[in-house]
Amino acid sequence: MTVELPRTLVFSPRANDTSQVLTVAAYRRGMLTEHLTGWRVPEGFTIGGPAHLYAGPLFADAVAADLGVGLLEPPDDWLTRLPYDTVRRNIRMMTMAEAWQLRTPAFLKPPNDKSFPARIYRDGSQLPGPDAVDSDTPVLASDPVQFTTEFRLYALDGEITTGAQYAIDGDLDIEPLAGHELEPQILAFGADVLSECADTLPSAVVVDVGLIVDPAHGAVAPAVIEANAAWASGHYAADPERVLDAVLRAAGPMDEISTRDRIFLRSPVRRIDDEP
C-alpha cells in the first residue's frame, strides 16, 4: 500500500503577513510548512511529499530548482501587448542600457523581480548604475499617471477568485474586495481583461487593476496596472484560501506543470554579483 506524503509549502527565512496567513491555510488542508533558514536548500534537506514555494523572486531563484519547483510568471512584455483602452497609458519594453539614456520622466519598473525600485524617475540618470544592475536587464517604461484606487485580483484558470484594495492615491490602504463599493466595477473590468487575454497569462496569476485619471479625457476609468507572479505577491486582504489555491498552482512540482503553462516558467535571473 502506497502512502501519499503530505505536501509542503516552503517559505523564505523572512516571515510576512502573507506567509503567516498561508501557513494557517496550509495547515487547514493538512499540508506541512517549512521556513528555510538561509538562501540555500540545506544538504540532506527532505520534505517528504511534493514541494510548493512562496517567496520573493531572488530567494525563489536560489532554491526552486533544488526543491523541484517550477515558477510560473507573466511574460515580461505582457503589459505592452494590451490595447491602449485597457492600460490607458503608453508602455514599452526596453533594456536598462536604453533606460539609462532617458531624459524625460517615466514610470520604470523591472517586469518580474525587484532588481531596482519601481517608481517615477525624473530621467534615466536616477536609475541604479551598471555596478548594481546588468545593462541587459529588462525594463518596463510607461507614462507617469495617477491611480486613484488600486486593487489586487487573484485569477485561476481565467477566473477571478478573490481580491483586495491595497492603495488609495498611492498610499497603502487595505480593504477586502468583497463588499467594497467598487467591487462590481472592478470585477467586471477584470473579467473583461481575462476574457480577452487569459491565454497570454499563466493559469494562476495576480493582476493589479485600478481607477486611473485618463489623460485623454480627464475622466476616471479602470485600467490594468500590472500582472505579477502569485508566489511572490502580498495578499493584502484577499481570501487566504483562494490565495493559497493560486500560490500552489503557480509554484509547485515541475512534473505537475501543465503543457499549457510551461511557456510561463521563470528562468532564474543571474545578477552581476552572483558567483560564476
Rank of each mutant, 00 (worst) to 15 (best):
F45N: 04
H180N: 13
M1D: 09
S195L: 13
Y27K: 04
T161Y: 04
T8A: 12
R266Y: 03
P117I: 04
I168D: 09
L58Y: 14
L82A: 00
D76S: 08
F264E: 02
R260A: 11
G158K: 14
R270S: 00
A246T: 07
D17Y: 13
Q126R: 15
F189L: 03
A229N: 07
A15G: 00
E98F: 01
T259F: 15
A246L: 01
G190Q: 02
A51T: 07
L71A: 06
E4L: 14
A223Q: 15
F151P: 05
A65S: 11
E275K: 14
I91H: 01
D136F: 15
L53W: 09
V10P: 03
A97W: 07
N90T: 13
T18S: 09
R266C: 00
D76R: 05
N112E: 08
A232F: 00
S258V: 10
D61N: 02
G234H: 05
V69T: 04
S115E: 15
D61A: 06
C197G: 08
D274N: 09
R28A: 04
V213A: 11
I174L: 02
A251M: 08
V145K: 03
P111H: 02
P222R: 08
L153T: 01
I257H: 13
P268K: 07
I186V: 07
P276M: 13
P240W: 10
T18G: 11
V220W: 12
R103C: 11
P128T: 06
E275C: 08
P50M: 07
D61K: 04
R122H: 10
P83V: 10
P202E: 09
D157G: 12
R262A: 10
Y166R: 05
N112S: 04
R266M: 01
D245R: 02
D17W: 08
Y27N: 00
N90H: 15
E226G: 05
L172V: 10
V69H: 03
M96C: 12
F116K: 11
A251I: 13
A25W: 14
S125P: 00
W231C: 00
L53Q: 05
S135Y: 12
P57A: 11
K109S: 00
P6Y: 12
A246M: 01
T137K: 09
